[in-house]
């Protein structure tokens, strides 16, 4: 995913409407692009064309179903560790080598590496964390979600 900001004129008003509307959902019908395009005053083909372009320029990171790993029988867990400054990149490589690591961010704190484990079984979290601890010699702090609060967030395009 690119962290570059698009030029201000990269998106027109219709692009912004599409991004705002399609964050909420997409129809499960035989002609979903036609159905999603109609309220925007577009044809299905025009919507497909615009979505292709939005994807190409990096305005969209994903388009499709968003799955809940826990509901599928697997689990997610936010984890953190403190990587020594001089050794940060090597530790990041060791952590990232695990396919269970879905994303990993450097953050400015004593706990300076924060990553999410996603595993097909609940036991996979502790197993993967233990492997990372053995490989790095560092404590992996686990912060599983106890409760998720309702999310009202939408990116305003």
């Amino acid at each position: 995913m690119s962290r570059q900001t698009l030029a201000p004129d990269a998106l027109d008003a219709m692009d912004r409407q599409i991004l705002n509307r399609l964050q909420d959902g997409f129809p499960l019908t035989p002609h979903p692009f036609d159905d999603a395009a109609a309220p925007l005053g577009l044809t299905g083909d025009q919507l497909i064309e615009r979505l292709s372009r939005l994807r190409e320029i990096g305005a969209i990171t994903r388009f499709g179903p968003f799955f809940d790993a826990a509901a599928m029988g697997g689990d997610f867990c936010l984890c953190a560790l403190t990587a020594p400054q001089g050794d940060f990149d090597r530790i990041a490589d060791l952590v990232n080598a695990h396919p269970e690591v879905a994303h990993n961010y450097a953050r400015d704190h004593e706990l300076n590496m924060w990553f999410v484990l996603a595993t097909p079984t609940p036991e996979g979290i502790a197993e993967t964390a233990a492997r990372i601890e053995a490989e790095t010699g560092l404590t992996v702090w686990r912060f599983p979600k106890l409760q998720e609060f309702f999310i009202g967030f939408r990116v305003q395009a």
Binding site: R3, L22, Q23, D24, T61, F66, V155
Partner: peptide, 12 residues
């Protein structure tokens, strides 16, 4: 959870 577009908030 839903079928939708995920905008790249950095790009925006």
């Amino acid at each position: 959870r839903r079928i939708a577009v995920a905008p790249n908030h950095y790009a925006l």
